[in-house]
């Protein structure tokens, strides 16, 4: 499995994502500059966290017009995997790859802490190494992570099991509707989440609960490609 981690001006979790992929899957990961127009060689594209274009205007609003985002759209259309983390999730919603939008945290404060996430759907290509209903500990760090979707969209997210992660009871840090922390598209190949699984991959970092996200993706890819 080959992974591309997109680098926008202002991305700052790009190298962390590369490190985490290599450490958890043993597979290669490249940094790909935002002007790149082709991602054909890659199986997984990670849109990492950070402050692309300073998050000026709205988080993710400017990055979505980068040349590389056309290639990310194509990649997703082909059914290949796209993972958006934090700012990456914001970019994917701005780009229309995922429904809804992310507003300023209800507290109006940036919030950074490790908290509980409930794995709502452990049947996705990104989460099948978790147990359904399991609570995992993953760090968050964002100022605009307050997920919003209108009633109709929410109903369809619920109906299609597209809500993958929710903040554990009482731990919603930002006011997200329905405690939503991460969602997947209806085709099941694009996941966006505010928490940072790449920050929870070793005992030294305080949690290893993020590992299984990356290993889930690897085995999904291997299963699809008939490799052991």
């Amino acid at each position: 499995m080959k992974t591309a981690v997109i680098q926008f001006p202002g991305s700052n979790c790009d190298e962390d994502a590369v490190k985490a992929v290599v450490a958890t899957t043993g597979e290669a990961a490249d940094l790909v500059w935002y002007t790149e127009e082709k991602l054909d060689d890659y199986d997984l594209v990670i849109v990492p966290g950070g402050f692309s274009y300073g998050d000026y205007l709205r988080a993710g609003a400017i990055a979505r017009f980068s040349p590389v985002m056309k290639a990310v759209q194509d990649h997703a259309r082909k059914g290949k995997y796209v993972l958006g983390i934090c700012n990456g999730f914001q970019i994917l919603t701005e780009a229309g790859l995922l429904p809804g939008a992310l507003r300023h945290n209800e507290s109006l404060m940036f919030q950074s802490m490790t908290l509980g996430l409930v794995v709502e759907n452990a049947a996705t290509k990104f989460t099948h190494h978790y147990d359904s209903g399991e609570t995992i500990r993953i760090p968050i760090a964002h100022g605009e992570g307050n997920y919003f979707a209108d009633e109709a969209t929410l109903r369809s997210l619920e109906a299609n099991d597209q809500i993958v992660f929710r903040y554990a009871n009482g731990e919603n840090p930002n006011g997200s509707v329905a405690d939503i922390a991460g969602i997947i598209n209806d085709k099941g190949n694009v996941l966006g989440m505010m928490p940072h699984p790449e920050r929870a991959v070793s005992e030294l970092l305080g949690s290893t609960d993020g590992k299984r996200l990356f290993t889930s993706i690897l085995t999904s890819w291997r299963d699809a490609h008939g490799r052991a």
């Binding site: 962390d16 940036f110 950074s112 760090a141 970092l205």
Partner: peptide, 28 residues
């Protein structure tokens, strides 16, 4: 001082082995 340091991203770079709130911070 959690109210303070919860507003700071202490973990970016994924080398923070002792985050804020202890006697000293440790980075790898």
């Amino acid at each position: 001082k959690a109210w303070v340091y919860h507003q700071y991203d202490a973990l970016v770079r994924t080398e923070t082995f002792v985050p804020p709130g202890s006697d000293a911070a440790v980075v790898g």
